[in-house]
Amino acid sequence: MRSEEEARRAIDQYSDMVRRLCMIHLKNYADTEDIFQTVFLKYVLSSASFESPEHEKAWFIRVTINACKDLLKSFFRKNTVPLDQILEQPAPLKDRHREVLEAVLSLPAKYKDVVYLHYYEGYTAPEIGHILGKNVNTIYTLLNRARQILKETLGGDTGE
């Protein structure tokens, strides 16, 4: 079992990333709390040793995504809430940020992870394929389609 110091460091380092992944997948704050508890407890109880910080980060991404998917499989969790509630933040979001995030959240589930990992975390398609355990070509396809949908949704002002 890991120490309290290790737990604090992991929460400081990865809580924002876990929070963003939760926002992509989950519908409310209570579910996000559940995922936080699940992911960090798993980390504290895990005896896995990481070869590098990148390895540890990839572990958190994988565990968080899997925990979100497990939670969503539950019948009682399949409720929907307005996007406003999902995007609730201590500091109000600016309109342009809200618009972009709403576009991402409107994407089919299979595109959300790759969009986040590529556009925010800066992972390449092979790296995403490795983390998510998917074929690289599948990742390229998902990224291309997601990009097209986002372009259509957000119009010309976000052209890459």
Binding site: R19, L101, Y119, Y120
Partner: peptide, 18 residues
């Protein structure tokens, strides 16, 4: 689009209470 997405995702932070 890269910057817009990055900037938007950057606004999301884990709440202190969380």
């Amino acid at each position: 689009m890269n910057d817009a997405l990055k900037e938007a995702f950057g606004q999301i932070r884990a709440e202190q209470a969380l």
